[in-house]
Computed example of a mutant assay.
Amino acid sequence: MALHRDPDHELRLFQTGEHPCGYWPDRQARDLVLDPQDERLARLYPMALSWGFRRSGDLVYRPHCQGCRACVPVRIPVDRFAPDRSQRRCLASNADLECRILPAERTDEQFALYQRYLQHRHAKGGMDEHGTHEFDQFLIGSWSHGRFMEIRMPAAQGGRLLAVAVTDVTELGLSAVYTFFDPDEEKRGLGTFGILQQIAWAQRVGLTHLYLGYWIHGHRKMDYKRRFQPLEYYDGRRWLLADPASGSLAL
């Protein structure tokens, strides 16, 4: 079906067939996907982010499941963000680390870390079998304006790579695509630290938002996003400010 009229031609939107949900194993999922053959995807992607879509490789999608609205698009208005006590502790405990932003080009060091992370976090889930082709296909794609934010030990201590935050850069904000880190350094809270560094990055370059993808109430791996305040969520029509005292987002 057509999503809206473009000056040149209609933007087509497809609905996938049902497939196993990646978050709840007892559920089936479906997605809305922007036409992957549309040559304008790179230009349309920022607008799609504002509609609650997300990128995975070259696909721009949004969950569209029958009878389920668990996946809620969320973003942080970075100029209003204030770290809480736990996040300030995370910043302090990782103050020795060095961050640098690089083009989205795979290195052997990054790929080795990615494999270790998947084998620890997603053992026997399919992703742990990813090779270099799947890495490029999933995290880089062919048209996105992505960057790799590397988080390393200080150069004086060898500069070992600890984490990579894959980030898309658009005129509307940054989009946190995926973060992988050294499983032996889990106590550092590198996932949280990566988001805090992406917020600081957006602030430095004058972007208004960091898009975090989907928040899922009650899901252990996704509920952490509610800790970043203030937080805005998309209700299908507009972005609204979430109530930090609420355990869920009103839809």
Rank of each mutant, 00 (worst) to 15 (best):
V74P: 12
G57I: 09
Y45Q: 08
S50P: 00
A82Y: 00
G52Q: 04
P77L: 02
A70G: 15
S50F: 01
V78G: 07
V60W: 02
L49D: 07
C65Y: 02
F81P: 03
P63E: 12
G67Q: 08
R80V: 00
P63V: 09
A48W: 13
I76T: 07
R54A: 02
C71M: 10
S50W: 01
A82M: 05
G52W: 03
A70M: 11
D58Q: 10
W51M: 15
P63K: 08
C71I: 10
R55D: 03
V72D: 01
G57C: 10
R55V: 05
R69G: 15
L49W: 06
W51I: 00
M47E: 12
Q66Y: 05
Y61T: 03
Y45H: 14
V60G: 03
P46A: 09
P46C: 08
C68R: 13
P73W: 02
A48Y: 13
W51A: 11
M47Q: 12
Y61I: 02
L59P: 00
Y61A: 03
R62Q: 14
R54Y: 00
Y45E: 13
V74H: 10
L59G: 00
L49P: 11
R54F: 01
V72Q: 13
R75H: 05
C65L: 07
R75E: 01
R80H: 14
V60C: 15
P83N: 10
P46Q: 11
